[in-house]
Each structure stands twice: as structure tokens, then as C-alpha cells.
Design a protein around this nucleic acid. Structure first.
Lengths: 225, 225
DNA sequence: GGTCTATTGAACTCTCTGGTTCGTTCAGAA
DNA sequence: TTCTGAACGAACCAGAGAGTTCAATAGACC
């Protein structure tokens, strides 16, 4: 229960727009942030619209005003989360590096993004519980993500041509090999910690994992045998 | 879905008499099966006690009679599911095989069990959404699973001694490398299919994945570099 | 047969929660 | 200033869904 902003009475003209009582875009974003936290913590069914509203400075009414309903809000949250992942991947330019270094870089970026965004990982887990219906329904998510595979496919071809990679590698399978570990150590961190007693968030553990998955992937693509 | 165990004795042949017999153990198991299906499909918050009851031949009253409540029923479901995994791993005797073959076998068993038991994978995903609270609270689950690591640690030592594996391998990390891929391709199969259009349940895809993770793990432990 | 108790079923209660109603306020246009 | 519509808040509603009540019945044991 945030104390209501008692409409700060007319700040002196020094600051451009200090406090706005009307701020539709900000309200929208605030709801999206709150919903991202709520749904990633409790899932779609477990998340409460009232609790999302309580996390913001506005009310439940606004959620329905801007998003229409719980389901659509969840869809909006998911779409934005996938967008963040896509941006991270698009940021690195694989063509500039030698194949092996480019692949190592891709692994590291993937690792880092998952580690830095557990809420994204959890949302994807939640979405899979719901059989991927919302991802299926969002062309935006589907198209943008397919792009990663194209980039990886090009890299594989280049590496193969240059003799850095062995022939016969499949882009999608390799992507899965990379993502699986990066995803799993975040998505399952609670059961892993409960059962094995090792906290994956400890810096030294994370560093070892980062080295391991890069090493495993590079060994996997290396020519020989 | 309706796996009616046609075991009803005293069937006069003509009238399918809905005789209400006393079968406490069977009722308990039936509830457990129904709850496993419900919770793995919809999660803990999304699962409905009424729906679980509807999946059985008995009523909601029995769920409370035998398990006490939704939460305890979920805990019982989770404990049984983890038990199945543990049994599969205990079944294979790693000591009889050469290190490389033993490790390959471990990878394959892990792969096969995850592929054959998506409901287990989904339950673990659900449990992680709930921050592993129930796994944490169940000493049974924790102890049995820790055993896998001991077995793997012994195998690593043996392989290292015999020169089949390179030195410096960590048992828990290696276990995670193996599990992550086996788990991920099942846990995330819906979003993967939605985004990349490849169904991991197709036999040829599954076979390729099985070969890939074994190859990747074996290359990772191999001496050299 | 008679008694006793573990099991069982139908219907009920009551809180939680997604969604709505209705009225209000702000900011800019005219 | 007045008007208009977007942005907002408090209270309300209806149905869903977890958990209960109470009595009935099956089978075991005498």
C-alpha cells in the first residue's frame, strides 16, 4: 500500500516535468514491471491481479484499462521478456570474429543473459507449463527468435569451410545444447540447491559453469573423431 | 486416460453394477495418479482439487481423507515422481563397464528417463516455480538424489586413474551438463516447437539429440588440450 | 446376527479473486 | 472559461474453488 502521491502542488518551473499526475506511458510500464515480477514469481495461475496492482502506485482498474485482462497482461509480459533476449543476441556481431571465438562469444552472451535475467527464464518455464500457447500466438516472438538460428547456421557454415568446425553440425541442435545448460542452471536452481547444496549464484560456481559450457561446446564442434 | 483396472471381482456378466467396494490402497493410488497428471499439466496453483477428484472414481472427500489437503497431496506426488528417477539410476551398475562406456550409459539412461517421463520433468519445473520448498522439506528426496553424485564421482575417479578421462572434472557440474540437455528438451518442448517448428518427440529428432548429448559429454571428458 | 470402525458420498460453506460499475479528475482544445 | 475525452480510484459482484459436515455403508471380528 503505497501512500498516494498527494499531487505535489506545482513545483517551480525549474524542473521540466517533475511530477505528473497523468502519465499513461509510465503507468503502463509500471504495470508491466509489476506483472513481470508477479508472474515470474508465482506463475500465471498463481499470480494475483490484486497483488500486481499493489506492486504499482495505481489500481487494478488500470490493469483492465490498459491490458484488458490477466491473460493479455501475461502475454504482454512474455512478449517483452523475449524481446530482451533477442536484443542481447542481436547486439553481438558474429561475423567479425574467427569462428571459434565467435562461437565462444555466443555461448558467453547466452550464459550471461540467462544469469542476469532469471525472471525471463522463469517466465519461459511458466509458458511451457501452459504448453507454449502464448508464444505460439505471438508472431513477434516466433520471428525474432528464429533469427538466432539463421545467424548460428551461417557461423557453422563458415567454421566448417575454414576447417575450424567438423562437418555435419545442426544449427538448432547446437543452439539447444548451448541454451539448455544456461537455462537449466537458472530454471532449476532451487531444486539443485535443495538437493545438492550448491548455490549456482555464487560467483565462483557461476564462473566455473560459464567456463564449462564454453569448453563443452567448443570441444563438441571441434574436428576429429 | 481412463485406465480402468478392470479387476472388479464378482462380475455377474450382465449388469455392470456400480458396487462400492472398499479398496483403500487402490483409492490412494488412484488419487496419486490423478494428481500427478493434474499438477504436471497445470501446476500447483493451476491444478484443481475438484478436477483431480473427477479424474478418479472417488470424490474430493477422499483426497482430504487420505492426504489432508492440496498442498500435502502435491508433496506426495512430487516425492513419488522423484522416486521413479532414483530407481532408474540405481538400476544401472556403472562399475561393470569401462569408464567411457559407463558414462555413455549414464547419459543414455538419463536421456531415456526424461523422455519417457515428461510428467516428472514438468513437476520439477513446477517445483522450481515454488522455489523448491517441497523438495527442501523432504529428506527422502534429498538423500536419494545425492547418491547419484557419489556414483558419478567414483566413476570420474576411476576414469581419471585409467587415463580415459582428463583430470579436474567435477561430478556435480558434469551431472548438470548431462541433465540440463535431457531436461530442457522436455521441459521446454512447447516453446521450442512454437518458435523453431521442430517437434522433439519425433523419433528421428529424439535419436539425434540422444547421440548429440552423449557425444558432447564424452568429448568433454576426453583427455587432451 | 450384531457391533464397531475405517471408508465413503452428496451437499454445503465461505473466502478469495478476476472482472465490472460508476463516478471523478486532469490536461489540453476551442 | 468551458468542453471533452483520456486517465484514474473505490467499491462492488458473481463465480470459482479449497476445505467441511454429516450421515451412510461395507466389511471385519465377535
Amino acid at each position: 500500500m503505497n501512500s498516494a502521491p498527494q499531487r505535489d502542488p506545482a513545483e517551480p518551473g525549474a524542473t521540466p516535468q517533475p511530477v505528473r499526475t497523468r502519465a499513461p506511458e509510465r503507468t503502463r510500464l509500471e504495470i508491466l514491471d509489476a506483472a513481470t515480477a508477479e508472474f515470474s514469481e508465482k506463475g500465471l495461475a498463481g499470480g494475483r491481479v490484486d497483488d500486481i496492482a499493489a506492486r504499482t502506485r495505481t489500481t487494478k482498474r488500470m490493469i483492465y484499462y490498459y491490458f484488458g485482462g490477466k491473460q493479455q497482461l501475461y502475454a504482454a509480459v512474455l512478449e517483452r521478456a523475449y524481446g530482451g533476449m533477442r536484443d542481447a543476441e542481436a547486439a553481438l556481431d558474429l561475423d567479425r570474429l574467427a569462428p571459434i571465438e565467435a562461437l565462444r562469444r555466443l555461448v558467453e552472451i547466452t550464459f550471461d543473459h540467462h544469469a542476469a535475467h532469471p525472471e525471463f527464464v522463469r517466465l519461459v518455464s511458466v509458458e511451457n507449463i501452459h504448453e507454449g500457447r502464448n508464444v505460439m500466438a505471438s508472431p513477434v516472438i516466433r520471428e525474432r527468435n528464429a533469427a538466432v538460428i539463421s545467424a548460428l547456421r551461417a557461423l557453422i557454415q563458415r567454421g566448417e569451410r575454414e576447417g575450424a568446425f567438423r562437418p555435419g553440425l545442426d544449427a538448432l541442435d547446437l543452439h539447444m545444447l548451448i541454451s539448455s545448460f544456461c537455462f537449466y542452471r537458472v530454471s532449476n536452481r532451487h531444486t539443485l540447491r535443495a538437493i545438492f547444496g550448491r548455490d549456482g549464484r555464487l560467483p565462483e560456481v557461476a564462473a566455473a559453469h560459464r567456463r564449462m559450457i564454453a569448453e563443452a561446446v567448443l570441444r563438441y564442434v571441434r574436428p576429429g573423431d
